[in-house]
Design a protein around this nucleic acid. Structure first.
Length: 825
RNA sequence: GCGAGAGUGGCGGAAUUGGCAGACGCACUAGACUUAGGAUCUAGCGGGCAACCGUGGGGGUUCGAGUCCCCCCUCUCGCACCA
C-alpha cells in the first residue's frame, strides 16, 4: 500500500472490478426483499457537471446502503433522450440530433461510471430508441380507444422560440419552462391526454403519498384545484333560445347577484350582440384584452375592465332582471366561462361593481365591527328569500337542492387542472401513431406496423415547421383501413410522455412482448425511493402518476402510484446562482476528479448540508473533504501492520476507561450513522459522526507499545469507519478494506450492528443548574441513585458558591442528564 | 393577496421527547517541523476585561425554550382575477 493517497489510480481499479464482476446487476430471483431506488434520469444535453452529480451521489448512498442491509436493490440509469436541445444543436451546428444525442450519452455514461455510481448498466435505456417508444405508441392507441387520448382545436400555449405548443404545466409565470420566452396563445389542432378524467383520483391519492414532502403534495393539490359548487342557467331576457350557464362555489349568495359576466371570448357573446355599433365596441374591447401583456395581467391592483352589453339576464332565484357584461376578470378556461356576480361576498365582484356603479346586496350577516369590503366568511343568511336564517353551509346545500328540484341546475365539481396537451410541432420526438384519410378520417396505425419509426433522413433548418411535414415517405402513406391515400400525423409527443413510464421499463428493459413484463413490474414496482429536483413538483411527477393510473386501468401494472417515497434534493449553487452551463458557473467533474478524485467530490456534496437544502459550492469545502480522506488513508498506511496482529480474547469489563470509551463511541457512531441514513437522509451528520469517531480513534492510537486489547478496539473502530464510509466514498473504502487484508469485498459485507453492551455507560456527566443556569458538572456512576446525585450536586464547590445564603425551594432531576436547583424568590 | 418553508458564530451547518447552544467541516490566530509551505502536526477560536449577554424582533407558558403558544419583521419557493 502506498503511503500517499492517489485517488485516480484506485478509483479506476475499483470501477473496473465492479464493471467486470457486474457487481450491481440484479434479477427478480432473489430471496432478499426488493428495494427500488431511482434518480430522475437526465436529459443528455452534453456533459455532467458537479451540479448534476449531487442527485446521483445521494441515490448511490441509498443504493449501496440498502444492499448492505440485505436488500435486492434495483438502481438503474437511462436517458431522457428526445427533446429540443438536440434539434437546436442540429440547427446551430448541422449535426443530426440522433448523432448529437448518442455522443452525449456515451460521454455522460462514462462520467457517471467514473463517479462510481452503482448502476445496473445492463438495464440502461434511451427513450429515443424505437424499441422504447413503440410501446408508448401502442399505449397511445389504447388510450385513443378509451377516449383518454383525443384531438381537438383549442387555444393553447405557444412558445415562439421553441416553435411548439406547451402544456399548462410547462408554462411558468407566463414563460416557457425551458427557454423562458414569453408564451403566447394560438388556436391550433392538437392531441390531448384526458388527465382530467383522473383529477379526482390524483387528488384523493395525494393524502396517501406519505413518503412525499408535504410541499410537493400541496403543490399538486393546488394544481389540481378542486372546487365544489353548482352550475345553473341564467335566461336571457327576450331571447327564449338563449341562456347563460354559470358556475359558482357560493350558490347560497344567489340572492345577492346584481349582474352577470361573460368572458370576452365566450362563444355566446356574438349571438347576444344586437344593437347597431355594439359589435364594433365588443371587437374593440376584445382586442384590448387580448393585447394585454403578461406583465400587465400580473400587475397588482389592476383595474378590472368590462363592457356592458345591451342584453339582460334573469336571476332564476328571484326573477330579477340584471345587467350583463363582458369583462377581463372572467376567464374562458375555467368553469363555464361565465359567472353570476355577487359584489357583497366576492372581492373581485365588489371591485368591479364599485368601478361601474352597480348595486351591492349583502346576503350574509357581518360580524360586529366589520369594516371590510366583500365578506367571504361564515354567518347567517339575510336578504335571501327562502335561505334567510340558515348558515352559509346549510344555504349552499339548500340552494343547490332548489336548483336540482326545478331542473334549473346541478351540483358540480370543477377542477383547475386542464387536459394535457401532448402534441409538439417538432421533429426530435416519438411520432404519434395516427393517420388521416380523406375517406375514413382519423385512423390509428395498425399495431403490427409499430413502431412508427422517426425517419433519420431529414434536413433540420429551424425554419418552416417540423421537417417531418415535408418528408415524403413519412407523410404519404396508405390508409390502414381502406388502403387509400392518406397523410401521417407529423406532430410528435411531448417528451414528458416518455418520462412518464421509464421507471417501468427498467423493470424489464429488453422485453419485446410489451411495454413491461408483468412479473418484473409486479416484483419491482413501486419505486421505493425516488430522488429529483423540486422543479418537477407538478410536471413530471403529476404526469407519471397519471400515466401509471392509466396503465393500471389498462391492466399492465397493479400499482396505483409509481413512487412510494420522494426526496426533493436542493440545487447546487455557485456565486449566487444555480450551477448551470448557461450561467457559466459550472464546476467540471473532470477537474474535480483529476485534482481530488470522485470520492472527494461525492463526499463534499454529501457533507456540505442536508440533501433537501440548496448547497453552496465551496472550493475550500472540497479541500476539507479531501483532507479528511487523506488523513484516513495515511492512518491506515501507517498502522496497518500493527493492526494485523491477530485479535486476542478480552471482555468488555477488562478494558481500560479509554478503550471502553472508544468502543462505546464506535458503537454509538454505528447507531447514529444508521439512523441518519435510514430515517432522515441526513448524510451530512452521518459523515460528521464518522469524522468524530476517526478523530477519537487517532487520539486513542497515539500511545506507543499498544496492548493487544488496544489493537483490537482500534481495529474495530477503524473497520467500522471504513464500512460506514463505503456508501459515501466507495473507492477509497474498498481499497483500505483490501489493504487491511480483508478478502470479502465491502459490498458483500453486511452493514454493522451496534452492541447494546458496548453502549452502556460506566459514568454519567450530570449538568448542575442553579435557577436554570449551568453552574457545574459532576461525574457519577451510571447506577447512582437520584438521592446520591442530588447530594453530589449540592456538594459541588462551584455550585455551592451560588447557594450561599439562599434557601432551596426544590430540586429537579432529569435522569442521566441534569439537576436543576431552584432557589427561593 | 393565498399556500408552504426558512431565519442559529466570519461561513456551510449540528442540537431524539423542552434539558450543557454552536457537533463536524471551512476560514482565521498562535506555535512546532521545515531551505520553503498554499503540505503536515499541536493549541485556540460566539460576544464581553468581568458580572454577564447571546439562536430575526416583542410578549407568554415552564424549574428550564433554538425547540411549545401569541403578535410582528425579513427572506426563499409555489400559485396568482379559478368565480
Amino acid at each position: 500500500m502506498e503511503e500517499r493517497y492517489h485517488p485516480q489510480k484506485i478509483e479506476e481499479k475499483w470501477q473496473k472490478i465492479w464493471e467486470e464482476k457486474k457487481t450491481f446487476r440484479v434479477t427478480e430471483s432473489s430471496s432478499r426483499p426488493k428495494y427500488y431506488v431511482l434518480e430522475m434520469f437526465p436529459y443528455p444535453s452534453g456533459r455532467i457537471h458537479m451540479g448534476h452529480v449531487r442527485v446521483y451521489a445521494i441515490g448511490d448512498v441509498l443504493a449501496r446502503y440498502k444492499r448492505m442491509r440485505g436488500y435486492n436493490v434495483l438502481h438503474p440509469m437511462g436517458w431522457d433522450a428526445f427533446g429540443l436541445p438536440a434539434e437546436n444543436a442540429a440547427i446551430e451546428r448541422g449535426v443530426h440530433p440522433a448523432k448529437w444525442t448518442m455522443e452525449n450519452i456515451a460521454y455522460m455514461r462514462d462520467q457517471l461510471k467514473k463517479m462510481g455510481i452503482s448502476y445496473d448498466w445492463d438495464r440502461e435505456i434511451a427513450t429515443c430508441d424505437p424499441e422504447y417508444y413503440r410501446w408508448e405508441q401502442l399505449i397511445f392507441i389504447r388510450m385513443l380507444e378509451r377516449g383518454l387520448a383525443y384531438r381537438k382545436r383549442s387555444t393553447v400555449n405557444w412558445c415562439p422560440s421553441c416553435q411548439t405548443v406547451l402544456a399548462n404545466e410547462q408554462v411558468e409565470g407566463g414563460r416557457c419552462w425551458r427557454c423562458e420566452s414569453e408564451v403566447t396563445k394560438r388556436d391550433i389542432d392538437g392531441w390531448f391526454f384526458k388527465i382530467t378524467a383522473y383529477a379526482e383520483e390524483l387528488l384523493d391519492w395525494c393524502d396517501r403519498l406519505i413518503g412525499w414532502p408535504e410541499r410537493v403534495v400541496t403543490m399538486q393539490k393546488n394544481w389540481i384545484g378542486r372546487s365544489e359548487g353548482a352550475e345553473f342557467d341564467l335566461p336571457v331576457v327576450g331571447r327564449p333560445d338563449l341562456k347563460i350557464r354559470v358556475f359558482t362555489t357560493r350558490p347560497d349568495t344567489a340572492f345577492g347577484m346584481t349582474y352577470a359576466v361573460l368572458a370576452p371570448e365566450h362563444p355566446l357573446v356574438d349571438r347576444l350582440v344586437v344593437e347597431p355599433g355594439e359589435q364594433t365596441e365588443v371587437e374593440r374591447f376584445r382586442a384590448e384584452v387580448l393585447k394585454q401583456s403578461e406583465q400587465e395581467r400580473i400587475a397588482e391592483d389592476r383595474p378590472k375592465r368590462g363592457l356592458r352589453l345591451s342584453a339582460r339576464v334573469v336571476n332564476p332565484f328571484n326573477a330579477v332582471e340584471i345587467p350583463l357584461f363582458i369583462a377581463d376578470y372572467v376567464l374562458m378556461s375555467y368553469g363555464t366561462g361565465a359567472i353570476m356576480a355577487v359584489p357583497g361576498e366576492d372581492q373581485r365582484d365588489w371591485d368591479f361593481a364599485k368601478a361601474h356603479g352597480l348595486d351591492i346586496i349583502e346576503t350574509v350577516s357581518r360580524p360586529s365591527g366589520w369594516t371590510g369590503e366583500a365578506y367571504t366568511g361564515d354567518g347567517i343568511k339575510i336578504n335571501s328569500g327562502f335561505l334567510d336564517g340558515l348558515t352559509v353551509a346549510e344555504a349552499k346545500r339548500r340552494a343547490t337542492d332548489w336548483l336540482v328540484e326545478r331542473g334549473l341546475g346541478e351540483a358540480k365539481i370543477n377542477y383547475r387542472l386542464r387536459d394535457w396537451g401532448i402534441s409538439r410541432q417538432r421533429y426530435w420526438g416519438a411520432p404519434i401513431p395516427v393517420i388521416y384519410c380523406d375517406a375514413c378520417g382519423m385512423v390509428p396505425e395498425k399495431e403490427e406496423n409499430l413502431p412508427v419509426v422517426l425517419p433519420r433522413d431529414v434536413q433540420i433548418s429551424g425554419k418552416g415547421g417540423s421537417p417531418l411535414a415535408s418528408h415524403p415517405t413519412f407523410v404519404s402513406v396508405a390508409c390502414p383501413r381502406c388502403g387509400g391515400r392518406a397523410r401521417r400525423e407529423t406532430d410528435t409527443m411531448d417528451t414528458f410522455v416518455e418520462s412518464s413510464w421509464y421507471f417501468l421499463r427498467y423493470c424489464s428493459p429488453s422485453y419485446n412482448g410489451g411495454m413491461v413484463e408483468r412479473n418484473a413490474a409486479d416484483y419491482w414496482m413501486p419505486v421505493d425511493q425516488y430522488i429529483g429536483g423540486i422543479e418537477h413538483a407538478v410536471l413530471h411527477l403529476l404526469y407519471a402518476r397519471f400515466y401509471t393510473k392509466v396503465l393500471r386501468d389498462l391492466g399492465l401494472v397493479k400499482v396505483d402510484e409509481p413512487f412510494k417515497a420522494l426526496l426533493s434534493q436542493g440545487m447546487v449553487v455557485k456565486d449566487g446562482a444555480k450551477m448551470s452551463k448557461s450561467k457559466g458557473n459550472v464546476v467540471s467533474d473532470d477537474v474535480i476528479r483529476e485534482r481530488y478524485g470522485a470520492d472527494t467530490g461525492r463526499l463534499f456534496e454529501l457533507f456540505a448540508g442536508p440533501p433537501e437544502k440548496d448547497l453552496e459550492w465551496s472550493d475550500q469545502g472540497v479541500e476539507g473533504a479531501y483532507r479528511f480522506l487523506t488523513r484516513v488513508w495515511r492512518f491506515v498506511s501507517q498502522h496497518r501492520e500493527a493492526l494485523a496482529a491477530p485479535p486476542s480474547g478480552w471482555s468488555e469489563k477488562q478494558l481500560s476507561h479509554e478503550l471502553r470509551n472508544l468502543r462505546r463511541l464506535t458503537h454509538r457512531t454505528i447507531k447514529r450513522v444508521t439512523e441518519d441514513i435510514e430515517l432522515r437522509f441526513h448524510f451530512n451528520t452521518a459523515i460528521a459522526a464518522i469524522m468524530e469517531l476517526f478523530n477519537a480513534m487517532v487520539a486513542g492510537a497515539k500511545e506507543e507499545a499498544a496492548s493487544s486489547q488496544e489493537v483490537s478496539v482500534i481495529k474495530e473502530a477503524l473497520e467500522s469507519i471504513i464500512i460506514l464510509l463505503f456508501p459515501f466514498v466507495p473507492h477509497i473504502a474498498s481499497e483500505l478494506w483490501e489493504s487491511l487484508g480483508q478478502e470479502t469485498p465491502l459490498e458483500e459485507i453486511p452493514w454493522p450492528t451496534y452492541s447494546e453492551e458496548a453502549l452502556e455507560e460506566e459514568n454519567l456527566l450530570i449538568v448542575v443548574q442553579v435557577d436554570g443556569r449551568v453552574r457545574g458538572r459532576i461525574t457519577v456512576p451510571a447506577d447512582a441513585s437520584s438521592q446520591f446525585i442530588e447530594e453530589e450536586a449540592l456538594a459541588d464547590p462551584k455550585v455551592k458558591g451560588f447557594l450561599a445564603g439562599k434557601e432551596i425551594q426544590k430540586v429537579i432531576q432529569v435522569p442521566r442528564r441534569l439537576v436543576n436547583i431552584v432557589l427561593e424568590g
